[in-house]
Amino acid sequence: MKKFILGLLIGIISSLSQSVLANKNYDDIIKVFSQKTEVIVAMKEFSENFGQFRSDNNLKSVDELKKSVFAFYDGDFAKEYKITVGKMPDLTAEKSVDDDTIALQYYYISNNTAKIGEKNNFVDAKDKSKWTKSHVKYHGLLEKFTNDENGFHDLFLIDLSGRVVYSVFKEIDFATSLIDEPYASSGLGTTFTDMKDAAVGEIKTSKNTPYFPSYEDNAQFIGTAIFEGDKKIGIMVIQLPSW
């Protein structure tokens, strides 16, 4: 009994201090940022323009693009994964993405010549889409907040249908649907699900677990809803760096 009480007491102290350490004062920083006018407008524009990306670029088929995207999965991504994890990844589920994902990932991941971890430096794919115009407008602000000011691993804007309509670092979760597997049950996916009924200023934090798109590094996500007036228009999620 004494052991049980002692364990319980220390367990509480331990979990409190670990969560405080993991989240530092990020909750307030994230809350304030998600309420900035530019972020609200960015969320709105990325959501509206995402679905038009293929038609804006007259893409009738994404077959050729798919080859390039999957070559990136099997090449650069798999190589980095093997270095980090020690084995080759099984990408079967990740390759079940839809045409919208393929189109965006082609322009901003596989056709982006920046190295892994530096894809954030690519701002303008110079295509005909409104989405890219929004990217040129808002990426600087979002990138500065994520990387320069706070050193977060990534920032995601997710529309209410569960689509990752924007991310700063363009890992392979970029432009995917968090309603479908393999991403629905991931830390990012469950954070999105937890945020569905969130009120203004509410924050949800996921468990710290290995995350496939980040080469199985431990990842903890913090989400907050973005509102335009009283209307919820999307979810902003931060991925904390793995430590």
């Binding site: 190295k115 971890g117 894809k119 990387n147 691993h153 980040s214 590094d217 793995s242």
Partner: peptide, 9 residues
Amino acid sequence: IKGRKRLKN
């Protein structure tokens, strides 16, 4: 430093 570094780096 350009980009984002991880523990591995």
